[in-house]
């Protein structure tokens, strides 16, 4: 569905070098800290920026060659841009109806009602959460085959987040649809993504299936003495702590089987981000 090969984008103080793939029927997460390059990667996929190298393909075509019909199959939520705030939802409905062949006015209005979005209120007077809900509804309203969602749950309360993730899960159940989604809230991604890419300082530093990450990754908390005796073959990152060391591994079972006295926490996206990002920040790490 999406293929980025060695995509390069150079800014004055930032460089994106990124390769990733989103297969048909897959939900892929893109994680990373603020300014890591998530939005830049999304903008490259959408053709909103010109790249300095590499290729971006969507639906098997170079992104610059996507037709209007191709673009109708893409639903988008952007973190820093949205619908014209001077409009009401009612103003927008005929515009969407004209642009998208598969837009369903009735379903869209019913969903707006269900999510308590007022049709006659100007979007500029919406709360952040309401604006986000509206963008997601628009992205889901025209039977898109590909959803590109940059921080879709930002600004939403827990109930609204669950509701919207439910909508996305429902959407993804149809096997020929794909989603690429970024979020700061790792539990959002753990619950919905088939695989995750981690981006840091413009580069992909990790790609893993979510199941593998949750089931096979782990965080070892060891004292200095335990660390000395530890087999370090399967440690991905090590960080000095006040009590000894924190060690990230992708072979949790191995350590559980062989080091029964060591405290081992289950892997999570948060742990991976923390450990891998600290390496770049110059945290004290044993290589």
């Amino acid at each position: 569905m999406i293929r980025m090969d060695n995509v390069l984008k150079q800014y004055d103080n930032f460089r994106l070098e990124c390769s990733m793939q989103v297969p048909v029927g897959q939900v892929t997460g893109l994680i990373g800290r603020n300014g890591a390059g998530k939005s830049t990667a999304f903008k490259a996929i959408l053709g909103l920026i010109h790249t300095d190298g590499g290729t971006v393909e969507v639906f098997g075509k170079d992104v610059a060659e996507l037709t209007q019909a191709d673009r109708e199959k893409i639903g988008v939520v952007l973190s820093d841009s949205g619908l014209c705030s001077w409009f009401t939802i009612r103003d927008f409905i005929p515009v969407l109806d004209t642009m998208y062949a598969d837009f369903s006015r009735e379903i869209f209005m019913a969903e707006c009602e269900r999510l308590e979005l007022p049709l006659k209120k100007k979007i500029k007077d919406f709360s952040t959460g309401m604006k986000r809900k509206l963008q997601i509804l628009v992205a889901l309203s025209h039977d898109a085959k590909l959803l590109i969602l940059d921080e879709p749950t930002a600004g939403l309360d827990v109930v609204a987040r669950d509701e919207l993730l439910g909508l996305l899960r429902e959407y993804a159940e149809n096997g020929d649809r794909s989603i690429v989604i970024s979020s700061h809230i790792s539990s959002d991604l753990e619950g919905i993504c088939d695989d995750v890419y981690m981006i840091d300082n413009g580069k992909i530093v990790l790609h893993e299936d979510t199941d593998v990450l949750l089931n096979e990754y782990g965080l070892l908390k060891v004292t200095d003495a335990q660390y000395e005796k530890l087999d370090k073959s399967y440690l991905l990152e090590t960080k000095k702590e006040s009590f000894g060391y924190s060690c990230l591994t992708n072979q949790r079972q191995f350590y559980q089987d062989n080091y029964s006295s060591v405290v081992i926490e289950k892997g999570s996206i948060d742990e991976v981000i923390t450990m891998l990002a600290k390496r770049r920040l110059g945290g004290k790490v044993d290589e």
């Binding site: 959408l46 209007q68 673009r71 988008v76 841009s81 949205g82 014209c84």
Partner: peptide
């Protein structure tokens, strides 16, 4: 001006609209 406000161009060009259109 309205299209461009609040970085609106970015979202606008994710709709099925080419820049020439």
């Amino acid at each position: 001006n309205f299209d461009e406000a609040e970085n609106g161009f970015a979202y606008l060009f994710t709709l099925p609209i080419s820049r020439k259109d």
